[in-house]
């Protein structure tokens, strides 16, 4: 499923919609974790990574693992320099007021059944 369709269906905020490739990103799954080494071990290419971490190092982890996007939960917002770095690296940063649990549930349903439910 295309990332921008997921953004519309769940109602996510895009912190850096200017990333050139944004419209073409294909999402195959998701992974929820706040421990960086756990993400490195568990996240698959094309996953949306759901986390409450919002510091600079999440960009490096997402880039390393070819994450489809990072979704920052609980209404937390990354600093300007983090957004800038993400844009520079071509990593899409998303936000939501939902908790990690709620966001993961909606994404799971959307990818599995084609609707948020």
């Amino acid at each position: 499923m295309k990332l921008h369709n997921i953004v519309e269906a769940i109602g996510l905020k895009v912190f850096n919609p200017g990333v050139p490739n944004y419209g073409n990103i294909e999402i195959s799954g998701g992974y929820a974790s706040d421990l960086l080494s756990d993400v490195i071990a568990g996240l698959s290419k094309g996953d949306i990574w759901i986390t409450i971490q919002r510091h600079l190092n999440i960009i490096a982890v997402a880039k390393l693992k070819d994450a489809g996007a990072i979704l920052i939960a609980k209404g937390l917002e990354p600093d300007k320099n983090v957004i800038e770095k993400a844009t520079e690296e071509g990593v899409i940063l998303l936000g939501t007021n939902l908790t990690t649990f709620e966001a993961a549930g909606k994404l799971y349903n959307l990818l599995k059944y084609g609707e948020v439910r």
Binding site: L35, L36, S37, D38, I40, A41, Q53, H55, N57
Partner: peptide
């Protein structure tokens, strides 16, 4: 910051 999962070496 999410470091220290104890999974670096593994």
């Amino acid at each position: 910051y999410g470091f220290g999962a104890g999974m670096g070496f593994p």
